[in-house]
């Protein structure tokens, strides 16, 4: 489903340190993994992209169970959103016609395969910046459902 403009803005904050999300994935038997991710963007209104910086367990989980949940971690005010949907990792070397949920891998990698060049992480404070931005691919989610996670509305569906 398509993200609203405020959602797209929240996930693509340029400057002031950017947005942070948590990506939760699960093994096939329910062992979850929840990690913060900083290099995020929205692609074609209904896909969320994250730079894959060697997220080992995320990869293992997505290889056997291609689904995920993205929860906005910072800045949160008025943005208590949880996005879920089909999720995988796109990487150089996939067949040239490889598609995921209607998107060509080559199209995503061409634009976002070198995140550091497109959006250099210079403004990230040195103690939390990766020493060197080594990217292996792009984690992609096709957003299928959006929910509120605020305590009083947790789980309520958001229509866009």
């Amino acid at each position: 489903m398509k993200l609203t403009k405020p959602m797209k803005d929240a996930l693509q904050i340029i400057g002031k340190g950017g947005a942070i999300i948590h990506l939760t994935t699960s093994s096939l038997h329910g062992i979850t993994n929840t990690v913060a991710e900083r290099f995020i963007t929205v692609f074609k209104d209904e896909y969320i992209l994250i730079a894959d910086m060697f997220a080992q367990k995320t990869r293992v989980n997505l290889n056997e169970n291609p689904t995920g949940v993205i929860t906005l971690a910072h800045p949160v005010k008025g943005r208590t959103w949880s996005f879920s949907g089909a999720t995988t990792i796109l990487q150089e070397g996939l067949p040239s016609d490889f598609e995921f949920e209607g998107i060509k891998a080559s199209e995503v990698l061409e634009e976002w395969g070198n995140w550091a060049e497109k959006e250099p992480p210079t403004e990230v404070p040195p103690d939390i910046r990766p020493p060197r931005m080594v990217q292996r691919g792009v984690i992609i989610m096709k957003v299928i459902e959006i929910n509120d996670y605020s305590p009083q509305k947790a789980g309520d569906k958001i229509k866009t």
């Binding site: 948590h22 939760t24 699960s26 038997h29 329910g30 979850t32 995920g68 996670y149 789980g155």
Partner: peptide
């Protein structure tokens, strides 16, 4: 952010 999942791996986060 608390990640949970069903026994067949469907995640839910609060």
């Amino acid at each position: 952010h608390i990640g949970t999942a069903s026994k067949n791996g469907v995640p839910k986060v609060i």
